[in-house]
Design a protein around this nucleic acid. Structure first.
Lengths: 141, 141
DNA sequence: ACGTAATATTTCGCATGCGAACTAAATTGC
DNA sequence: GCAATTTAGTTCGCATGCGAAATATTACGT
C-alpha cells in the first residue's frame, strides 16, 4: 500500500509513546518530561514559549501545564510585567524528575539509533525534519 | 542537525495528523481512513483483526469502530459463528470515502517522499519498522 | 485619550488511544 | 458434562492535543 510511510510513522510514534508510558515511574509522562527539558534549558519561560518549544498550540500546552503543576513538578506564576502572561518554574521535585528523565531519554535515544550507522541516522533525522518543513504549523487550510 | 529522534518523531507524526485532519472536511479522519483501508483489503474482518492490522488495542479499535459506524462509513454485524465476535463491513458511503482516501493517501505519501531518493526512503522505512521491532506490542513492563 | 487591534491564555467539545477491570461466549481439561 | 480458562469486546478513567470561540490585558493609531 502506498500509505506506508504515513502508517509507519503513526505506529512508530505510538509504540515509543506506549513504551515510555509503561516505563516511566511516578506519573512523569513523556510529554511532561518534554516540558521539564524546556524548563531545564530556560527556567521561567512563558507558558506560550514552552508550548512553541514543544510544538504545541495554546490549548495543548495549557492542559499539559495544568497536569504538570498538579503533579508538583512545576510552578506557574503570573508574569510581573504582563497581566496576561504566566511563567513556568521547576520545583525541586521537578528538578529531580528532570535528572531522571535526562538519563531515560538518552538511553531511549541510543536504543532508537541501534543498528543504524551515523549516516543513516542523519538521513532519518533529515527526513523527520523535512516532514515538519512540509507541514508547517499555521498553514493548514 | 537535531538528532533527538524521540522528539522529532513525535512532532513529525503530529504535524501529519494535524494536516490530514485539516484537509479532510467530510468527517473522514485519518484513523477512520485507515480502518477503511483495512476493510478495502478484506471486507468483513473481525473487529479485533482490524485492530491488529492498525496496531490498536481492543479499546482503541472499539472506539474507532463506534465512531466510524456513527459516521455511516461501516457496518458492524454479529458474527454468525461466534457469539462474542463482530464483523465489519464497508457501507456504500464508506466505499466512496475509501476511494477518496486512497487518492489522498497516495498524494500525501508522495509528498512525504519528496526530496529524498528511493535509497533514502528505504532507510527511513527500515528505521520506522525497526522502532516497531524494538518496542513490541505486549512487552512493556 | 480612546477605540481598535493584537496578544496570552482559557474553556469547550471532540478524536485518539492506553491500561485496568469487567462481561459474555467459546474452548479445554479431566 | 461441567468447571476452569481463554478469547472477543466493552466500559471507565485518563493523557494527549486539535480547532473554535471566549476572556482579559496590552499595544497602537490617530
Amino acid at each position: 500500500m502506498d500509505r506506508r510511510l504515513i502508517f509507519l510513522l503513526n505506529v512508530a510514534q505510538r509504540r515509543v509513546q506506549r513504551f515510555v508510558a509503561a516505563q516511566s515511574p511516578k506519573g512523569v509522562t513523556a510529554t511532561q518530561a518534554g516540558l521539564l527539558f524546556v524548563l531545564g534549558r530556560r527556567d521561567g519561560v512563558l507558558l506560550g514559549e514552552a508550548g512553541a518549544a514543544l510544538d504545541l498550540g495554546m490549548p495543548g500546552i495549557s492542559g499539559l501545564v495544568e497536569r504538570t503543576v498538579e503533579a508538583g513538578l512545576i510552578a506557574k506564576r503570573a508574569d510581573p510585567d504582563d497581566g496576561r502572561a504566566w511563567r513556568l518554574w521547576l520545583t525541586p521535585s521537578g528538578r529531580r524528575a528532570l535528572a531522571r528523565a535526562k538519563a531515560g531519554a538518552a538511553e531511549l535515544n541510543a536504543r532508537l539509533m541501534e543498528g543504524f550507522t551515523n549516516a543513516e541516522i542523519d538521513i532519518v533525522a533529515r527526513w523527520l525534519a523535512s516532514v515538519q518543513r512540509k507541514f508547517p504549523k499555521g498553514e493548514n487550510e
